[in-house]
Protein backbone atom coordinates (compact mmCIF):
# COMPACT_ATOMS: atom_id res chain seq x y z
CA UNK A 1 0.00 0.00 0.00
CA UNK A 2 2.97 2.28 -0.49
CA UNK A 3 1.50 3.73 -3.64
CA UNK A 4 -2.10 4.98 -3.70
CA UNK A 5 -4.38 3.98 -6.54
CA UNK A 6 -4.82 7.59 -7.64
CA UNK A 7 -6.01 8.54 -11.08
CA UNK A 8 -8.46 11.19 -12.27
CA UNK A 9 -11.55 8.98 -12.06
CA UNK A 10 -10.85 7.76 -8.54
CA UNK A 11 -9.93 11.19 -7.25
CA UNK A 12 -13.07 12.86 -8.55
CA UNK A 13 -15.28 9.93 -7.47
CA UNK A 14 -13.75 10.16 -4.02
CA UNK A 15 -14.54 13.86 -3.87
CA UNK A 16 -18.14 13.27 -4.90
CA UNK A 17 -18.87 10.24 -2.71
CA UNK A 18 -17.25 11.12 0.60
CA UNK A 19 -19.26 14.25 1.52
CA UNK A 20 -22.48 12.36 0.88
CA UNK A 21 -21.49 9.35 2.97
CA UNK A 22 -20.44 11.59 5.85
CA UNK A 23 -23.66 13.63 5.76
CA UNK A 24 -25.65 10.40 5.55
CA UNK A 25 -23.69 8.93 8.45
CA UNK A 26 -24.45 11.92 10.66
CA UNK A 27 -28.09 11.72 9.60
CA UNK A 28 -28.28 8.03 10.50
CA UNK A 29 -26.69 8.80 13.86
CA UNK A 30 -28.90 11.71 14.89
CA UNK A 31 -32.08 10.31 13.36
CA UNK A 32 -31.52 6.83 14.78
CA UNK A 33 -34.25 7.29 17.36
CA UNK A 34 -36.93 7.93 14.76
CA UNK A 35 -35.96 5.75 11.83
CA UNK A 36 -33.93 2.60 11.26
CA UNK A 37 -30.30 3.26 12.03
CA UNK A 38 -28.20 4.01 15.02
CA UNK A 39 -24.66 4.04 16.29
CA UNK A 40 -23.28 0.93 14.63
CA UNK A 41 -24.47 1.78 11.14
CA UNK A 42 -23.47 5.42 11.46
CA UNK A 43 -19.99 4.41 12.58
CA UNK A 44 -19.54 2.17 9.54
CA UNK A 45 -20.76 4.93 7.21
CA UNK A 46 -18.45 7.55 8.71
CA UNK A 47 -15.50 5.18 8.53
CA UNK A 48 -16.05 4.75 4.77
CA UNK A 49 -14.83 8.30 4.14
CA UNK A 50 -11.48 7.75 5.80
CA UNK A 51 -11.05 4.21 4.42
CA UNK A 52 -11.64 5.57 0.90
CA UNK A 53 -9.19 8.39 1.49
CA UNK A 54 -6.56 5.87 2.57
CA UNK A 55 -7.17 3.68 -0.46
CA UNK A 56 -7.23 6.46 -3.03
CA UNK A 57 -4.68 8.92 -1.72
CA UNK A 58 -2.37 6.61 0.19
CA UNK A 59 -0.93 6.75 3.68
CA UNK A 60 -0.32 10.50 3.74
CA UNK A 61 -3.84 11.55 2.75
CA UNK A 62 -4.97 14.90 4.12
CA UNK A 63 -8.32 13.51 5.25
CA UNK A 64 -7.01 10.92 7.65
CA UNK A 65 -6.90 9.62 11.21
CA UNK A 66 -3.67 7.99 12.31
CA UNK A 67 -3.69 4.53 13.89
CA UNK A 68 -2.45 5.78 17.25
CA UNK A 69 -5.19 8.38 17.44
CA UNK A 70 -7.78 5.87 16.22
CA UNK A 71 -7.15 3.54 19.18
CA UNK A 72 -7.37 6.49 21.56
CA UNK A 73 -10.59 7.80 20.06
CA UNK A 74 -12.16 4.33 20.16
CA UNK A 75 -11.40 4.25 23.87
CA UNK A 76 -12.93 7.71 24.26
CA UNK A 77 -16.09 6.48 22.53
CA UNK A 78 -16.43 3.55 24.92
CA UNK A 79 -15.75 5.99 27.77
CA UNK A 80 -18.55 8.32 26.64
CA UNK A 81 -20.95 5.39 26.80
CA UNK A 82 -19.78 4.30 30.24
CA UNK A 83 -19.80 7.88 31.52
CA UNK A 84 -23.40 8.28 30.37
CA UNK A 85 -24.12 5.12 32.30
CA UNK A 86 -22.38 6.28 35.46
CA UNK A 87 -23.75 9.84 35.43
CA UNK A 88 -27.22 8.97 36.81
CA UNK A 89 -25.57 7.19 39.74
CA UNK A 90 -24.58 10.60 41.14
CA UNK A 91 -28.14 11.91 40.86
CA UNK A 92 -29.98 9.16 42.64
CA UNK A 93 -30.62 6.76 39.79
CA UNK A 94 -29.47 3.34 38.66
CA UNK A 95 -26.80 2.55 36.12
CA UNK A 96 -27.97 3.83 32.69
CA UNK A 97 -31.24 5.22 34.10
CA UNK A 98 -31.64 8.13 31.70
CA UNK A 99 -34.56 9.74 33.50
CA UNK A 100 -32.14 10.71 36.30
CA UNK A 101 -29.78 12.62 34.00
CA UNK A 102 -29.24 16.17 35.29
CA UNK A 103 -31.11 17.81 32.40
CA UNK A 104 -34.51 19.45 32.55
CA UNK A 105 -36.89 18.92 29.63
CA UNK A 106 -40.60 19.23 29.15
CA UNK A 107 -41.17 15.50 29.20
CA UNK A 108 -39.33 12.64 30.85
CA UNK A 109 -39.22 10.82 27.53
CA UNK A 110 -37.13 13.62 26.01
CA UNK A 111 -34.43 13.07 28.61
CA UNK A 112 -34.44 9.42 27.59
CA UNK A 113 -34.00 10.45 23.96
CA UNK A 114 -31.05 12.65 24.95
CA UNK A 115 -29.44 9.78 26.85
CA UNK A 116 -29.93 7.49 23.86
CA UNK A 117 -28.30 10.09 21.60
CA UNK A 118 -25.32 10.36 23.94
CA UNK A 119 -24.66 6.63 24.03
CA UNK A 120 -25.16 6.43 20.26
CA UNK A 121 -22.43 9.04 19.82
CA UNK A 122 -20.13 6.87 21.93
CA UNK A 123 -20.99 3.76 19.92
CA UNK A 124 -20.46 5.62 16.64
CA UNK A 125 -17.04 6.87 17.67
CA UNK A 126 -15.95 3.41 18.80
CA UNK A 127 -17.18 1.59 15.69
CA UNK A 128 -15.71 4.16 13.29
CA UNK A 129 -12.32 4.25 14.96
CA UNK A 130 -12.17 0.46 15.34
CA UNK A 131 -12.69 0.01 11.59
CA UNK A 132 -9.98 2.58 10.84
CA UNK A 133 -7.73 1.02 13.46
CA UNK A 134 -7.96 -2.51 12.05
CA UNK A 135 -7.45 -1.23 8.52
CA UNK A 136 -4.42 0.79 9.63
CA UNK A 137 -2.92 -2.26 11.33
CA UNK A 138 -3.39 -4.43 8.23
CA UNK A 139 -1.99 -1.82 5.87
CA UNK A 140 1.11 -1.30 7.98
CA UNK A 141 1.65 -5.06 8.12
CA UNK A 142 1.67 -5.25 4.33
CA UNK A 143 4.06 -2.29 4.29
CA UNK A 144 6.64 -4.14 6.35
CA UNK A 145 6.45 -7.17 4.08
CA UNK A 146 7.58 -5.25 1.03
Amino acid sequence: MGKPFGGVVLNSAFRVIVPFTIVYGVYVLTHGEFSPGGGFQAGALLAIGIVLARLVQGQDAKFNVKGKHAVMLAGIGAFIYAATGFLPLFFGGNFLEYSCLPVHMHEAAEVHALGILMIEIGVTLTVMMTIIDIMDALIRESDSDE
Partner: peptide, 10 residues
Protein backbone atom coordinates in the same frame (compact mmCIF):
# COMPACT_ATOMS: atom_id res chain seq x y z
CA UNK B 1 -16.10 -5.86 22.78
CA UNK B 2 -15.76 -3.78 19.61
CA UNK B 3 -13.08 -1.61 21.21
CA UNK B 4 -11.24 -4.65 22.54
CA UNK B 5 -11.33 -6.30 19.10
CA UNK B 6 -9.75 -3.24 17.51
CA UNK B 7 -7.12 -2.97 20.20
CA UNK B 8 -6.30 -6.68 20.00
CA UNK B 9 -5.89 -6.58 16.23
CA UNK B 10 -3.52 -3.64 16.59
Amino acid sequence: VMFLAGMTAM
